[in-house]
Design a protein around this nucleic acid. Structure first.
Length: 463
RNA sequence: GGUCCCAUCGUCUAGUGGUUAAGGACACUGGCCUCUCACGCCAGAAACACGAGUUCAAAUCUCGUUGGGACUACCA
C-alpha cells in the first residue's frame, strides 16, 4: 500500500511551496487509496519553534489536508536515531570523528583555495578505536568509488558519483541526529513508499540511498517536484510577500481556490483549470507533474478565488464572511440579510476581505460621502430629484424590481434625464459611493426604512 | 568553483516524431451587455532560448552553447 509523508521542519511558517509539496503527497496518497502522514522534523533544537508547528498544522487543516496517523515529532524519537547510528558503527558503515570544527573549517578553506572539493578529509575514517573523553560526531562511511543511481518518477534516471559525496555527519557532538539520517530512519521505520519533495533535495538523495543500503533496506520511490519561485525566479522566501499560508486565509482567500491553484502549479490535466477536491484526488498523477520551476502568480490565484466566490453556495460564503464583517466592528446576526449581500456581491468581490469592505455600507449608514461623488451627484439640482424620489418611494406598494424600475423611469421622463443621472444620486445617498451593486438590489437589502432615512439625510446634507 | 536539475506566449500550462498556420487559462487590448462597478459574451495581440546532429519528418530524440535554479553545514 502506498504511504506518503509531508516532513516540514518547524523553522518557519508553512509557505506556498511547502503547502504544495504537502498537497502533492496528500493527493497522491488519496488517489492511490494509501495513507498520508505528517512528520515534524524538529531536530534543529535552536531554530524549531512551537509557533511554527502550530502554523503548519493550522495551515494544512485550513487547506483541507488531513493525515492518517497522529503527527510524528522527531524530537521525541532521538533515542531511536542514536541507536541506529551506533548500530551503523558496529556494522562498519559509520565511525566516530574527533576532529574539531575549527580544524575542519580550516582544512575546508584550504581545499577551496586550492580548487579542491571542500570535503572532510576522512582523517578519522580508519582510526582505530581509542577510549577517550573527547567529543565526537558520527560520520557515515561513504563509499570512495562507484556511483549511485535512482529512477525519479518525475525526472527519470539520475546518477551521482560517490567521489562527489562527503562522509556526512549523522550524529552531532551533542548526540542529536542530522537531517539526512533522520529522514532515512523515519521513512524506513514508517514504511514510506513514495518520497515526494522539492527538487532541492535531489542532491541529498544519493547520500540517503547509501544509508538505506547500509541498513540493507530498499529505498522508497522518489519524486522530486520543481520548486515554486518568486517573481525574481529564486526560491520562494519571506521577501516574496505572504509568509504563511494562513496569511492567505486572513486576506480572504478560500481554501478551495488555494488548493485548486496549488495543484496546477507543476501539474496539469489537459486543458482543465477548475478542479474540485474530489476531482483532484481522482485525477492527480505524479506522471503528469512537470519538471521546471513555476512562478507564483497572484493574478491567477485571484481569478480562481473569484471563481469560487461565485460558485460556492452563498450560505457557505456568508458563513466564512462573518469574521471579516465582525473584524470591521459590525455584527451580523441576520443570516438572511447576509446571504442577500453575498448574492449581490459575489460577482464583484475577488476575496472575502474585499467583499466585507464592499458590504460595509449595508451595515452602517455612510458617515460621509466620497468627496467627488458628493460634488458631482449631491447638488441642488439632484436635491430636487431626491426629494421627488423619496415621496414616490414612500408610496410604492412593494419593492419589487419592476416597480422600482417604473419609478426611476417616471423620474427620467419628468426631469428629462438619463437613467444614470437619476440612479447615481440615489446610489451616493444610500452608500456614500459611486460604485455599488445594482441600485434595486441595494434598496431591497437595505429595506424601506433605512432607504428613507438615508435619502432624507442626503437631502439635508445639500445646502 | 564543483555536482545535480531545468528551459513552449509576461505567467500557469497542453503537446510524449507527422492536419499544430503550436491549443487552453490568467493577465493585457478592443467590442458587446449595462443604472455605476463587476460578472458574462465575442474578438485580438502574445511562445517552442540558441547552434549543430539523427530522421522522409523535430517543440518533441542526441550533443553542445547560453541562461536560470538547487545543493555543496555539527540547517532541514
Amino acid at each position: 500500500m502506498v504511504k506518503t509523508r509531508f516532513a516540514p521542519s518547524p523553522t518557519g511558517y508553512l509557505h506556498i511551496g511547502g503547502a504544495r509539496t504537502a498537497l502533492f503527497n496528500w493527493l497522491f496518497a488519496r488517489h492511490m487509496k494509501g495513507s498520508f502522514v505528517l512528520r515534524i522534523e524538529d531536530t534543529d533544537l535552536e531554530r524549531s519553534k512551537d509557533e511554527y508547528v502550530k502554523d503548519i498544522i493550522d495551515g494544512l487543516t485550513w487547506l483541507g489536508i488531513d493525515w492518517d496517523e497522529p503527527p510524528y515529532f522527531q524530537r521525541e524519537r532521538m533515542d531511536i536515531y542514536r541507536n541506529y547510528a551506533l548500530n551503523l558503527i558496529e556494522k562498519g558503515f559509520a565511525y566516530r570523528c574527533y576532529c574539531t570544527q575549527e580544524e575542519i573549517d580550516r582544512k575546508r578553506k584550504v581545499a577551496l583555495k586550492e580548487g579542491k572539493k571542500p570535503h572532510y578529509d576522512r582523517t578519522c575514517r580508519e582510526r582505530p578505536f581509542e577510549k577517550t573523553d573527547k567529543p565526537f560526531v558520527i560520520r557515515f562511511k561513504t563509499p570512495l568509488t562507484g556511483e549511485v543511481t535512482f529512477s525519479d518518477i518525475v525526472r527519470g534516471t539520475i546518477t551521482f558519483q560517490c567521489e562527489e559525496l562527503d562522509d556526512l555527519i549523522i550524529l552531532r557532538s551533542d548526540l542529536t541526529p542530522t537531517y539526512n539520517f533522520t529522514v532515512v530512519i523515519d521513512d524506513m521505520l514508517m514504511g514510506i513508499t513514495h518520497v515526494i519533495r522539492g527538487d532541492d533535495h535531489i542532491n541529498n538523495t544519493p547520500r540517503q540511498i547509501l544509508i538505506y543500503h547500509a541498513f540493507g533496506y530498499a529505498p522508497p520511490q522518489f519524486a522530486h517536484v520543481p520548486l515554486i519561485h518568486g517573481k525574481d525566479r529564486t526560491r520562494l522566501s519571506k521577501r516574496h510577500g505572504a509568509t504563511s499560508l494562513l496569511e492567505y486565509k486572513h486576506e480572504g482567500f478560500l481554501p478551495e481556490a488555494l488548493m485548486n491553484y496549488l495543484s496546477r502549479l507543476g501539474w496539469a490535466h489537459g486543458d482543465q483549470e477548475i478542479f474540485s477536491r474530489e476531482e483532484l484526488i481522482e485525477k492527480f498523477d505524479l506522471h503528469n507533474v512537470g519538471t521546471s520551476a513555476a512562478i507564483f502568480d497572484m493574478d491567477k490565484l485571484l481569478w480562481l478565488n473569484s471563481h469560487y466566490m461565485k460558485t460556492l453556495p452563498p450560505e457557505v460564503i456568508a458563513q466564512r464572511l462573518v469574521p471579516f464583517i465582525e473584524a470591521m466592528g459590525f455584527s451580523c446576526n441576520e443570516t438572511k440579510k447576509l446571504i442577500s449581500i453575498v448574492e449581490t456581491l459575489k460577482a464583484r468581490a475577488k476575496t472575502l476581505k474585499e467583499m466585507a469592505q464592499m458590504a460595509a455600507f449595508f451595515f452602517s449608514a455612510p458617515v460621509s460621502y466620497e468627496k467627488e461623488a458628493q460634488e458631482k451627484f449631491l447638488t441642488p439640482e439632484t436635491k430636487t430629484i431626491l426629494k421627488d424620489f423619496l415621496i414616490e418611494f414612500k408610496s410604492l406598494s412593494s419593492l419589487h424590481e419592476e416597480e422600482q424600475k417604473r419609478l426611476v423611469e417616471r423620474l427620467t421622463h419628468k426631469y428629462n434625464k438619463k437613467v444614470v443621472e437619476i440612479v447615481q444620486p440615489i446610489r451616493v445617498a444610500l452608500s456614500g459611493k459611486t460604485v455599488t451593486p445594482g441600485i434595486f438590489e441595494v434598496i431591497n437589502i437595505l429595506g424601506r426604512e433605512e432607504v428613507e432615512k438615508r435619502i432624507e439625510k442626503a437631502i439635508q446634507s445639500i445646502p
